[in-house]
Nucleic acid binder design. Structure first.
Lengths: 201, 201
DNA sequence: CTCGTCGTTAACCATTTGGTTAAACCAAAC
DNA sequence: GTTTGGTTTAACCAAATGGTTAACGACGAG
């Protein structure tokens, strides 16, 4: 087993455990056992447990950024781009279930708020730049911050409250059909929003 | 100092600390120090640290339930009731900032998911019962689960991502004017949704 | 073959944690 | 004054944690 494999195994185990148990309760011994390596290797390869979280987030946000950038380049026009970005974002969360859990857990409280905020901010800033152009002259209360937070919140909350929704409906909220339905709903709400902006301009 | 005061002080300190640091990192020594009581009193009055969290959540959800029930009784008609409930929920989150932080941190990962899910579920079920009646015959993708999650997500995300929004806009997202603007936006989005439901029925 | 580098291991360590326990304290009732 | 019940205190404890360290093994280059 070479160093790259060892690193990947540790990252994979940490990802799973942070997503299940949260960072604070997960111990380096848990991670070592899950990844099948000696605990001291975590420190050899990553330094501290905090640094391991940093490495994990770094990887996630790099991939998310690529996915969103690719989505933006796929089609022209605001409405079409919104759909592509929504698909990309929702698909990313669906494929990386730990990511939502880790981020939602750490974005508003705990020791890693700044770590997460500083990585989320550029995404929001990009969204703002893009939406500001599109929403010029939008009616009151439909400025870019409001719209961005609304769209972001509709998507991320589905994943965050998945367990509530599962028990509420008796169905798997992460099944492909359920996710497709959620995407359709969000897109429709967004199109209502955009129609409102266009109509009142 | 009587027992009731002691309990309140412990609960207050726990509330603040769990909201700032998260449950797992907060120690009983932290709580004792913040509340100005001896650490053993936490166990005397509440049992385990987990039981303390339970007591805190119990108190929160009782109050939230009352606030929402009162809001529902204030006016008649779906649109008016939605506004009242939105106001009540947003005001509750604004006045209890720790609540959002604790709940958002524990609802999707960690050792207390079930504890939070079991308390959030009745709220969602109530919302479903109410919206199901109102949304009978709603168009595809506008069923109660979808609408409820959307409205809930728009509100809770503003509070969860407050720090991102603060750095994004350079303004305090929790200032009264900012919260009022958020409420207006959410209400407008909801009214667009309801108009869509009515118009397509 | 020797040396240097990298990755790995097993053992170690100081510190901290949630919870326990028995004694002390306090106020009210008798 | 004594007793009782409730509250509080100071000390204690076993277990666990993140991180450290020195030794070992493997491999490639000279």
């Amino acid at each position: 087993m070479d160093a790259t494999q060892t690193r990947e195994r540790i990252l994979g185990a940490a990802d799973a455990l942070f997503g299940e148990l949260g960072f604070d309760v997960t111990t380096t011994r848990d991670i070592a056992e899950r990844s099948g390596v000696n605990k001291a290797l975590i420190h050899y390869h990553f330094g501290t447990k905090d640094d391991l979280l940093e490495a994990l987030l770094e990887g996630y946000y790099a991939k998310l950024g690529e996915a969103l950038t690719a989505a933006l380049g796929r089609r022209k026009g605001l409405a079409a781009q919104v759909e592509e970005v929504l698909d990309a974002y929702a698909d990313f969360l669906a494929e990386h279930r730990s990511f939502t859990r880790i981020v939602q857990r750490e974005v508003a409280s705990g020791r890693h708020v700044e770590r997460v905020v500083q990585r989320t901010l550029p995404m929001f800033q990009l969204g703002m730049t893009w939406l500001d152009e599109a929403l010029t002259g939008a009616p009151r209360d439909f400025d870019a911050v409001q719209v961005l937070t609304t769209v972001y919140g509709m998507v991320v909350t589905w994943f965050t409250y998945g367990e509530v929704l599962r028990q509420l409906s008796g169905k798997d909220p992460f099944a492909p059909a359920a996710l497709a339905a959620r995407k359709r709903h969000v897109k429709k709400v967004v199109s209502l929003l955009l129609a409102e902006v266009e109509g009142r301009r």
